[in-house]
């Protein structure tokens, strides 16, 4: 149990640093940045208390906001993602989730990609709606959501596969 907490604390710090130091400065084509810190929310242990999970997600989003001077947009998006995670898990993993037997290190790659894609799109849409905060710029919001999502999904899947130890 302690090792699980340890791993999550390390993951929290490393993903936060990677996000604010590297990923916020990529600016691919001038405006596309991946937001890989949400991997932490994807991989958080499922059995644990949901209240703790919500609080930790909020804290992570708040830290990213602090580093990038963006008010509370990341915190809001992260909390939404954390709250909607059970629904995402149910739609992408089905029975496995019902029996509480998901291990991210050895699930099917297809379900994993569905799970990450749905989560990323929800997170990014809320993020950019709040960041731009002007419904008349809906096209800009959708454009940013689309391109950043593609970038984030690619990176997230790669990172999860690379760092999971015993994939078949």
């Amino acid at each position: 149990m302690n090792s699980v907490i340890g791993i999550n604390i390390v993951r929290f710090i490393i993903l936060l640093l990677a996000q604010v130091v590297i990923c916020n400065n990529i600016n691919f084509f001038g405006y596309i940045n991946p937001y890989i810190y949400i991997i932490f929310i994807f991989l958080f242990p499922i059995k644990d208390e949901r209240l703790v999970f919500l609080l930790v997600s909020f804290l992570l989003g708040m830290m990213v906001d602090m580093f990038s001077d963006s008010g509370g947009v990341h915190a809001a998006a992260a909390v939404c993602l954390a709250y909607s995670r059970p629904i995402l898990l149910k739609t992408s993993f089905g029975m496995l989730y019902e029996h509480h037997t998901i291990k991210f290190s050895n699930t099917e790659i297809g379900s994993l990609i569905t799970y990450i894609t749905l989560g990323t799109v929800i997170h990014h849409f809320i993020l950019f709606v709040l960041e731009i905060f002007n419904i008349s710029n809906i096209l800009l919001i959708l454009k940013k959501t689309l391109f950043s999502s593609i970038f984030t999904i690619l990176l997230s899947v790669l990172i999860i596969i690379l760092f999971s130890r015993n994939r078949k």
Binding site: L54, L55, F58, G61, M62, D65, M66, F67, S68, D69, S70, G71, G72, V73, A75, A76, V79, C80, Y83, L130, F133
Partner: peptide, 26 residues
């Protein structure tokens, strides 16, 4: 969830108005 989301939303709205001193900045 509602509590945390409304905190985040308040901070966001505050950050969109000029020169409101912010708690969360770098």
């Amino acid at each position: 969830f509602l509590l945390l989301f409304s905190i985040a939303l308040t901070l966001t709205i505050q950050s969109h108005s000029y020169h409101r001193s912010k708690f969360i900045n770098s």
